[in-house]
Structures are given as structure tokens and as C-alpha cells.
Nucleic acid binder design. Sequence first.
DNA 1: GAATGAAGGACGGACAACCAAACCTTTTCT
DNA 2: AGAAAAGGTTTGGTTGTCCGTCCTTCATTC
Lengths: 245, 245
Amino acid sequence: MAGTAERRTARMLPNAVFAPVRSLTAFEETVERLGTAIKLGLLTPGSRLPAERELCARLGIARSTLRQALTALSQSGHVFATRGRGGGTFVSDPQPPTDPPSPEMLALWRETCDQRLAVELGVAVLAAERAERADLDALDELAATLEGALEDFAAYRQADVRLHVGLAESTRSTQLVRAMTETQGAMTDLIAYIAHPPQVLSSSNTQHRRLLAAVRERDGMRAAQIMTEHLQGTEHILAGLLPGG
Amino acid sequence: MAGTAERRTARMLPNAVFAPVRSLTAFEETVERLGTAIKLGLLTPGSRLPAERELCARLGIARSTLRQALTALSQSGHVFATRGRGGGTFVSDPQPPTDPPSPEMLALWRETCDQRLAVELGVAVLAAERAERADLDALDELAATLEGALEDFAAYRQADVRLHVGLAESTRSTQLVRAMTETQGAMTDLIAYIAHPPQVLSSSNTQHRRLLAAVRERDGMRAAQIMTEHLQGTEHILAGLLPGG
DNA sequence: GAATGAAGGACGGACAACCAAACCTTTTCT
DNA sequence: AGAAAAGGTTTGGTTGTCCGTCCTTCATTC
């Protein structure tokens, strides 16, 4: 009977429908967005942000709100500003250390990984459909960079993020790019304090190569398959170290 | 050189990093959440919402804010309230017609489909890992319901949503359930005004069956493959009817 | 038939976030 | 020297949200 199905299926639904609707303030969201982009190295040290008057327009917020965010980012050392013509707000050179993952972050690490799986799978399949030759050439270069950074995890991680975000860009979906940067930001917090021996990074990079090859051959399902294995790597490591594994 | 790769890869990035940070108000988000759940039939007509004093606590908002949202939903005819003991707020029986998709909705239909692809692929793979026997039995019943509703698109659509959301629930990821309901809400707006002849629905349902079978056999990749084909069905229809196809 | 309790409904004050528009200060380029 | 382009400052007003309190309705219970 349909009634039975409804009763069974509807069990956990209200938990999702009636879950908290805590929306971040414009200030918080701005700090999050810019801060994540800087931490991930998407905004490179030394690079200049758009002028405040232009940036607040792009972000759709008031200038005073943007300044709050920039003040916060400057106090945390991610950014500094110089005045006068030719001045501006710049990404700081020595990046402050990533803050340790919060308890609630650790409690929800599995949800974070699930989210990542969805984003990365979607990206893999769509990239296989839409990535252009030039995109893939650039991504291959990044994979080469990765191979030279097996000993320096910070450098490796940054190039890794660039590769995954770059793959998302090749789908031409701004939503997926945003979701990917968000996800990578959350993952960085999780894996920053975990040991990554060179051989792990090396095998991870082998998967990158195979992934790009599959995308190049427009084989979305093989790309998805490789991506799944790729992500399960980190997931297994986390499962061994964190509660709820 | 790494420099070249960076320059190529960074082309569209700022568009995502500096995109508007439009955060919805608590009021708007609440209307959206409850309204979508009602439109999708996840909150069935006649069912009672939790009492205001309890619901505002669950949603993490003030009661006055919740009342704003409920007032809006009652004025749009989705909900009605009765006073006194044993009263409450109930989902209206005759659902008001879905509003036609807005122009900006239509302009972004491809992004919506991309988002859906990601969510559904993640759900398919994770469900194949985690769905329990009882979940799948309930989903099979829903698939049977679907087969009896080939002539009534409204009924078919509602059961279809239930099935997809139910599959998301079987992953035990509240985030994915939320993402799925959001996505289904957006999709409903898009496909409400498109003809769906019975044979299309029938073949769509064949895919449901195959999907559930793959999940039951814990074959995540086959589930992903079938899901991709399943989604491409609607996508091709939309591509033929909407701009930017 | 009166009391109780559980529900929605209404009001008012306080506060924080956000916006808008000016104006000031510093620096560089012409 | 002056114009231009940037960050820095101030002010005032609007809106969303919260909190607490009280009122009204009405089924149940005594």
C-alpha cells in the first residue's frame, strides 16, 4: 500500500524540512568567501582585490559592510591595504596558519565528505561532457606541478585545490565552482592536521592523471569511477582518525 | 610553466569568488523551505505543522518571524490555521497552482540541471553504499505507485519527488536530503508546464526500477550510470524548449 | 457548566545588521 | 600643482529580528 510507503519514507523527512534556517549575515558570508579563497590560494599572495567601491557592487553589499569584512580579514592577517592612488587591498604574503578544526566541524566530517562526493561526481561527469582542449591542457600542467610537490604538503594541497576547482570551472557552471570552493575549504580544515606521506600523495596523483585522461576521452562514467576511488582515499584516512568512523 | 597554467585556470574564477553574496532573510528562507515542502507534497494536505512555539525553536528563529512566514503562506493559500486547543496550522487541501517559472529561473535552467546532476549522482552512489533493506522496500512501493499514475502527471510528479527524496534519505545525510528537496523544488517549477506523455513517464519509470535494482545490488557506478541517463531525459526535453539549449 | 490548558493572534520595545551618502586623507600620475 | 584614484571616517536612517507579554479561541476535563 502507498500508505505504508509514505509512513516509512517520511520518517526522517521533518528533520530536514524543519531543520534550522540559520542564514549567515552578509558580513559573515563575505569573510567566509574571501577568506576561503585566500586560504585555498585561489587569490594568490600579492594579488590585488578590486577596489572597494567596485567590489561591494559586485558582491551586492554596502561598502561599510564590505569594510567590516576587510577589516576582519586584515586583522587576521590575510589581507593588507595601502592608501592613495595605485593603492588597494592586497592578499598578504605569509599566510597565517589555518585554525584547527572546530568540534562541530569534526562531528560533521562525514556530511562534509558526502557533500564533496556529490560535487566532485557532478563535476567529473559534466567536465567529461564540456571541458575544452585548452582547459585540459591547463589541468595537465597542474598535474605536473603536483608531481613536483610530493614533499611539501602545503604546496601540494594548493595545487590540488587548483586542479579540482579548475575542473569545476571547465564545466562552465558557476554554481558548481562555488560549491567546489566551499567544499575544498571545508576539507582543508579537516585534513590540515593529518599526515600525508609522499607515497599517498603520489598514488593520489596517479588518480588525477587517470581522471584527466578519462575526461579527455569524454568518458564521464569512468571519470566518476576514478573520482569515487580518489575521494575514498581521504575518507578512509579520516575514518581511521575521527569519531563516528 | 606553472605560470601559464595559473593564468589559464584563473580566468573565470573571480566571477565565482566575487559573485553576489545575497543571503536570504530568515523570513524568506522559512517561506521557501515550508512552501517548497508543501508544493512538493512532502507535507501532505491536511497534515498539521508543529505548534508555532515548537516550530520556531526547531527552525532557530523567533516566533514573530515564523508568524510572518506562516502569514505569507496562508495568504498564498498553502496553509490555514485554526485557533483554540487542538487547533494548529494545517496544509491546505486544494493546492494553489504553481506559479509560472520566472524569467531568471528560465535563464538559469541549465545551472539548475547541473546542480541536480551533482546531487542525484552523489545520492545514487551513497545510497548504493548505505541504503538498508527497509528503505529499498519502501522505495519499491513508491515505484509501484508511479506505475499506476502514468495518466495523471500531478500525481506522478509527486510520487516521483517522494522517490528521489526517499533515496536521498536512505543515505542518512541530512545535507543531501535538503539539497535534494531544494533541487526538486526548482525542477518542479521548470517542468510544470511541459507536456509529459504517458510513454515518457513509463520509460522514466523503467529507469527507476533499474536504478533501485542497482542500489540493491550495491553497484554504485551502475546506479550512477542509470541516474545520468534518467536525468538526461528531462534535460533533453528542456533543451528543445528553452533558450540557451 | 466551570476550570484548565493548548493552541493561534497581536503588540511594543530593544537591538543589531545593513544601507546610503557624503566627506576626509593619502598617494601617484599627468 | 592639480587631478585622479584609492582607502578611511562619520552620520543617520531603515529594516529585520528577537524577546516578552498579553489576548482570544476552544476542546477537554473535572
